[in-house]
Design a protein around this nucleic acid. Structure first.
Length: 399
DNA sequence: AGGTATTCACATGAAACTATTCTCTGAGTTAGG
DNA sequence: TAACTCAGAGAATAGTTTCATGTGAATACCTGT
């Protein structure tokens, strides 16, 4: 088939989606379902800002996909609108600290903040306190109340400690004109416990916990989205229910449920099916897992891939193995691929990372007289393993 | 038998080092007046 | 003399290395019966 006819056919085929955007993770719905209570709570706390009084700092907790980000963004938006109407000098800033190479270090976070005030800062080369100074100066000039939301704030402190948070909370006492209100968002409930007590007390004047959605609520949310996203009569009965049930099992993660529905739709469309069936959901579930794993492998450094490759090789021989065995094989493969051999210390960390990514299961055990090590087994299905193996051989230049 | 001490094979932490990427600065060079 | 170039100093960051310390239980070694 010629490629042009393929495209012609593609266009002729009518899509089962009417508006796929609604299911994309970047989509921002007009109203947030089942979070009225939380919205009111947050709004109550932040409202003083509209009268140019600084609100208390606020902390928001809740599992992934339970509407934290959505709620906060929703409120920020309407606050900005109100402020604009009344000509109040209020500025809201939303930053996701998890984004790699955007806001995951002290320097980059401040640089990002400066960018919010339409000024450019070089990505490197300046001393950090210089960047702070620039930031302070901008703030003084702006003379505004600023509401700063730090999403996934735990990622930030995990990497670089809580010094930034301390500095941010201190800004208020150092600045005359502008004032900052901090809102931390995290999905780890005990996050506050390992913070500097000074930071903790000033940061968590108010705390709100978001409960996860239950299956019924997710169902309604999905229905709402599906109504806009798909053309009528596309979804077979039971699809939404199953999708919701699946997500409820995963601690009520609505985002996951929506992703699942979208992928299922895409799969159905690609296979030429006029409707979305239950089995498309199962396929979608597999595909999501598949993509997640592949993506987590592809853009890792060579050494990381090397360790993973060694692990896969050993896993072919036996189900359960230990750190030392991986290290031995790793060294051999390094010679073959002409990579420099890293120390066992580093390999230990890399193995821990593999565990974090869910590629392997590692458990620290003690073999008594024969030492202490990680007991490792592969956490991947057969077909994914083969796929990754291919990928790694290509990437490492083995045939 | 029962109790204690050892010992293995790593895990875990902290600090220091390295290579890369980037800015800023100021000396030296060049072109034009 | 102003504009340009280019090397060198200083920073941030990711990935490592070095050094130090921790650790759980199977075994070795006692002890007294």
């Amino acid at each position: 088939m010629k490629i042009t006819t393929f495209f012609d056919n593609f266009l002729k085929k009518k899509s089962i989606f009417s508006n796929k955007k609604v299911l994309q993770s970047s989509y921002f719905p007009d109203n947030v379902l089942y979070r009225e209570e939380q919205i009111m709570e947050v709004a109550n706390i932040l409202a003083p800002a509209l009268r140019l009084e600084i609100p208390s700092n606020l902390f928001i907790f809740g599992k992934t996909g339970c509407g934290k980000t959505l709620t906060v963004k929703h409120i920020l938006k309407s606050m900005e609108e109100t402020a604009q109407k009344n000509n109040t000098s209020l500025k809201t800033i939303y930053i996701n600290c998890k984004l790699k190479r955007v806001a995951d270090t002290e320097y980059r976070l401040i640089a990002r903040l400066i960018k919010e005030f339409n000024q450019q800062i070089p990505s490197t080369g300046l001393p950090t306190d210089e960047v702070y100074n620039i930031f302070y100066n901008i703030l003084e000039k702006e003379n505004k109340i600023i509401i700063l939301v730090l999403d996934e704030i735990d990622q930030l402190t995990k990497k670089i400690g809580d010094e930034i948070l301390y500095n941010l909370t201190r800004i208020n006492s150092e600045l005359k004109e502008a004032q900052i209100c901090l809102i931390g968002v995290s999905n780890r409930l005990f996050f506050l416990d390992n913070l500097d007590p000074r930071v903790k007390s000033s940061l968590s004047k108010e705390e709100i916990i978001f409960p996860p959605y239950n299956a019924l609520q997710i169902q309604t949310i999905l229905q709402e989205r599906a109504k806009q996203a798909f053309k009528p009569e596309i979804l077979k009965s039971g699809v939404i229910e199953k999708c919701a049930a699946y997500a409820a099992r995963e601690h009520g993660d609505a985002r996951r449920a929506i992703d699942l529905l979208r992928i299922a739709g895409e799969l159905a469309e690609r296979s030429g099916s006029p409707t979305v069936e239950i089995y498309h959901l199962d396929d979608a579930e597999k595909k999501i897992e598949h993509d997640r794993v592949i993506n987590s492998v592809v853009d890792q450094p060579k050494q990381f891939q090397n360790v993973l490759y060694s692990t896969l090789l050993i896993a072919k021989q036996k189900n359960i193995f230990f750190t030392g065995e991986i290290y031995d094989l790793y060294k051999k493969i390094c010679k073959k691929t002409k990579l420099s051999i890293l120390t066992q210390r580093r390999i230990s960390d890399i193995i821990a990372e593999l565990d974090m990514l869910g590629l392997i299961n590692a458990k620290i055990i003690s073999k008594g007289r024969y030492g202490r090590t990680r007991e490792i087994s592969l956490a991947l299905t057969e077909d994914i393993t083969i796929k990754i193996n291919e990928l790694l051989e290509k990437s490492l230049g083995l045939s």
